[in-house]
Amino acid sequence: MKQLFAAISVVLLLSGCSPNPPKTVYPQLNREAEFRGGLSWNPRSGRVITSWINPGGTMTTLYGDDTAVNYARSHADGAYPAGAKLGAVTWKQQEDARWFGGRIPAQVASVEIVVAGGPYEKYEGSPLAAVPGSDAQRAQFLLQQRAAVMP
């Protein structure tokens, strides 16, 4: 009889009362990593050229407009046609709550926009605000990044 009750209660338990999964498995946007503040161009309206991880734990993705992306994917020299627009977004990182072993974007640390043959702009802070001055060396560094292979 005891065994029968055990068997019955097992069946009852199997059909219900399971522990709730953690909050992180439910749908959510990464709001922390989105842009706050005005930019002269939204780099994330473009397409990915490449990405890198910086020493000190930030991550950067370099985006480009059509002209920039088409050029980067067929040339290695970084000699973009005048007017091609590139944007580098650098995020602080956070552990991916859904994947131990992954780091994903947290707050935006900076946004840099460089136009081939044109100006270099940098935005920092929250909300993002333009940092005065130019940095020709940094602009050149961004233009020299090769496209990540996407066959």
Partner: peptide
């Protein structure tokens, strides 16, 4: 796929890769 827009990105230190989600 390579012309789609960015959704997010991941540094995967567990398997030494970098990822873009489009």
């Amino acid at each position: 796929y390579k012309n789609w827009k960015p959704v997010s990105s991941t540094e995967r230190w567990d398997n030494h890769t970098m990822r873009q989600i489009l």
